[in-house]
Amino acid sequence: MASTARAEERLTVHLTVNGQPLEETVDARLLLVHFIRDVLELTGTHVGCDTTSCGACAVLLDGRAVKSCTVFAVQADGRDIVTIEGLEQNGAPHPVQAAFFEKHAMDCGYCTPGMVISGYSLLQRNGDPTEDEIREAISGNLCRCTGYANIVDAIRTAAEHQRNGGTV
């Protein structure tokens, strides 16, 4: 084989997590969510289903919300990851997080990190979403407690705060 590269079972990855550059050697089969939770001990990212259905494991990969249970850690080599822990600003909750608190947008809280990541991701590209757009944006995230109404309300409120001069 002419190619210089060869497939490996263990690889060293360099990536940024919540602004911090990291280097780790991992099994190729290690999923990004397990890397985040078990290696980095950032347990805000949840595993709800493990079958790519619930979105509790959502993180930002190069700015895009993805299900971290369905990405290998090695795929994140050279990439930028933001988890729920990375959203806070100067020790204060991010406006989307604050709006979830304000609007009581959670019961058990299991889905919340993923919901916040999807809400944040929406507000990055659309500062004034309609209710339909909000519902569409969180349609990959399941919540078995709230009935979604308060979550939608919270994201709308965060958008308002953002338009009134807060940053998101």
């Binding site: 190619s3 497939a7 079972e9 190729a28 089969r29 999923l31 079958t51 090695v74």
Partner: peptide, 22 residues
Amino acid sequence: EPIFPARFAYVAPRSIEDAIAL
């Protein structure tokens, strides 16, 4: 139980030619 795949080896070639060769 957490679900994860069986062991495999991974490579991320930079060119289509390398991908095809691999």
